[in-house]
């Protein structure tokens, strides 16, 4: 009976992954509502639970693909793999229209580039302080401090080790959770009370879920402005980190 169930789940791997991730998301949004009154975004909880499951899977199987190394959960590996991940990332650009892009203007563009560079430098400097001395790992961790997407995209492009990529996701996740929870607390101090500063804020922070949740907890009217520039951040990060920023790191390290 159990073997039969195992067979069905394993031979329909991607479908199993949809069901499992859906259940995980439902549970996470429930926790978000009940325990944090929506302050800690459901997606952040779900991603945290995902990382915990990956840890459990790694301990249980001794493999390096987290929970996806458990046979009947192998579909998680396909669902969360590079192909579908990049496909979904590109789809997030769809919400942006050219008029809004123009309206965002120079400040938004400057904020996005400045945000990527500042976060990258913060992550890269700490990577060096923690003993990493190869350009690929330093760049990947710096990219992870940008967002938890830029890190793995950069890491995959440069051929970084899986543990470094996981570390870059962890750094991006820490950033995302901090943006969600700290934004309402610091909003007054940083002048985050109008569309223009929200636009700059989204560009600087970049983490879409962090920005959306952080602004929603501050002033829901500001969400679209921040989310719009944040949408560009991951793209700009994916463009800059494995190219210009990597070359700079490589030149400094060598």
């Amino acid at each position: 009976m159990i073997d039969l169930l195992n067979d069905v789940l394993a031979s329909n791997g991607l479908v199993t992954a949809f069901a499992v991730v859906g259940a995980l998301a439902w549970f996470s949004y429930l926790l978000s509502d009940k325990l944090s009154a929506g302050r800690l975004h459901g997606s952040a909880i779900a991603i945290t639970l995902g990382l915990i499951l990956a840890y459990a899977g790694g301990v249980y199987t001794g493999g390096d693909r987290g929970i996806a190394d458990i046979e009947w959960l192998a579909g998680i590996g396909l669902m969360g793999g590079g192909m579908l991940r990049d496909f979904a990332i590109v789809a997030t650009a769809f919400g942006v229209n050219l008029n809004e892009l123009k309206r965002a203007g120079v400040r938004g563009a400057v904020a996005v580039v400045a945000g990527v560079v500042v976060s990258f430098v913060a992550g890269a400097v700490l990577a060096v302080l923690f003993g990493y001395d190869d350009a690929v790992s330093i760049t990947t961790i710096g990219a992870g401090a940008a967002t938890y997407i830029v890190g793995p995209v950069t890491g995959s492009a440069l051929g970084a080790d899986s543990d470094v990529i996981a570390l870059s996701i962890a750094a991006g996740l820490v950033k995302s959770i901090l943006v969600m929870t700290m934004t309402p607390l610091v909003a007054g101090k940083i002048g985050l009370d109008n569309p223009q500063s929200a636009l700059v804020f989204g560009g600087l922070m970049g983490t879409t879920s962090g920005v959306a949740a952080g602004l929603a907890a501050t002033d829901p009217k500001l969400v679209p402005y921040g989310a719009m520039t944040a949408t560009f951040y991951t793209g700009v990060g994916c463009l800059l980190a494995p190219s210009v920023l990597f070359f700079i790191v490589r030149a400094i390290v060598a």
């Binding site: 997606s43 945290t48 693909r65 987290g66 969360g80 793999g81 979904a88 938890y148 996981a166």
Partner: peptide, 8 residues
């Protein structure tokens, strides 16, 4: 992204 986290 949740699935991606779970396979790291």
């Amino acid at each position: 992204v949740i699935a991606m986290a779970a396979r790291q």
